[in-house]
């Protein structure tokens, strides 16, 4: 059946191969690139996507310069209405706390420890709050260096969203934003890196540092990643299995245009983030091509995504998205 459909699409499009252009979030760029190659090989249709950042993605699609925009930060239904856009999620990823403490290889961080570190209240690694869950590790009396992004980023937004959910002090004073004036900077214990690459490099080159990075980048750079406490009090290692455990509780709602920041789920690894696609409401012909591409990716792209360290959407969410497309009249042509 699958082959038949693939053959049918191939036959249908080989005579009218089309091209769509998109730009936006850099976080899903590696997996989109894989999907684009696979899609081209099977259908002959060309998809162009450039990683320029979520802000640019939103701007470009709002001004109708591209066929679709990518954003790590979902837009609320009200804003989607103003900008006349539709929105749906594509893939989920984990954000991890990478660290570099010589001699320590399995760090466990409780919620209290994470709060203390980001708020600058826990200053040394041998603080009792950290030691409590790491009785077997030799934590040194060294200053904690906190590494963060120096550029505006969706990763920072999702990480600070998680902090806001978990910690009311953080919510009151900082909130969830793409650029934060970190309290640790003012104490002279902050370092920043440009892009996930810069953060990974800063963690690697600064002993006694900790920072937040996308799982895919941490994996690539061989960083030590902390096991952290979830909302249910259990500790979760940063593994794809625990990410998808969290993604089950995402609670996407098509009535709200899937508007949902999914960090801090009930169970599973708590710092997870979805990335989204925006399409113009009125350009239904082109939108159908965009959805055709992502429909192909939902069906055939899960393996590629997992290999790169991303979490494919659960099947029920994919079904919801296909339903959403149909309802809005942008479902891919059969």
């Amino acid at each position: 059946m699958k082959k038949f459909i693939a053959g049918l699409t191939l036959a249908a499009v080989s005579s009218f191969a089309w091209t769509i252009n998109g730009t936006g979030a850099t976080f899903p760029y590696p997996v989109y690139k894989k999907w684009i190659t696979g899609f081209y090989n099977q259908t002959g249709n060309q998809v162009n996507y450039t990683g320029t950042g979520s802000g640019t993605g939103i701007k470009e699609v709002a001004q109708r310069h591209v066929n679709f925009g990518g954003s790590d930060k979902p837009l609320s239904p009200r804003i989607l209405k103003i900008a006349k856009l539709y929105q749906f999620p594509t893939v989920v990823g984990g954000i991890v706390l990478g660290y570099n403490i010589p001699g320590v290889h399995s760090l466990k961080l409780s919620e209290a420890a994470i709060k203390g570190i980001v708020l600058g209240k826990i200053k040394y690694w041998d603080n009792p709050v950290i030691v409590k869950y790491n009785p077997n590790e030799k934590l040194p009396h060294k200053k904690i260096i906190f590494v963060h992004r120096s550029d505006k980023s969706g990763t920072t937004f999702n990480f600070t969203y998680y902090l806001s959910k978990m910690c009311s002090t953080w919510r009151k004073n900082y909130g969830a934003r793409k650029l934060i004036n970190w309290p640790t900077d003012a104490q002279g214990r902050g370092v920043a890196g440009k892009g996930n690459f810069g953060v990974s490099a800063a963690i690697k080159t600064n002993p006694y540092s900790i920072g937040y990075v996308d799982y895919a980048d941490a994996l690539k750079n061989g960083l030590n990643m902390a096991t952290i406490q979830g909302r249910d009090g259990k500790f979760y290692a940063p593994t794809p299995k625990n990410f998808s455990e969290g993604a089950k509780f995402a609670g996407f709602n098509p009535k709200m245009d899937f508007y949902k920041v999914i960090a801090y789920p009930k169970h599973g690894y708590p710092i997870i983030a979805a990335t989204f696609i925006l399409v113009p409401q009125e350009k239904t012909t082109k939108d159908k091509e965009v959805t055709a591409f992502f429909n192909w990716a939902y069906t055939n792209g899960d393996n590629a995504a997992s290999k790169l360290g991303y979490i494919p959407l659960p099947n029920n969410v994919k079904a919801m998205i296909r339903e959403y497309w149909k309802e809005k009249g942008i479902a891919p042509a059969k």
Binding site: I79, A83, Y161, R171, G175, V261
Partner: peptide, 20 residues
């Protein structure tokens, strides 16, 4: 500022980007 579950989410950028 739009509210997401009681969390202030900075949306200035987005609104300015779409000219709203």
């Amino acid at each position: 500022n739009s509210d997401v579950g009681g969390i202030q989410v900075e949306d200035d950028d987005v609104l300015a980007a779409i000219g709203a």
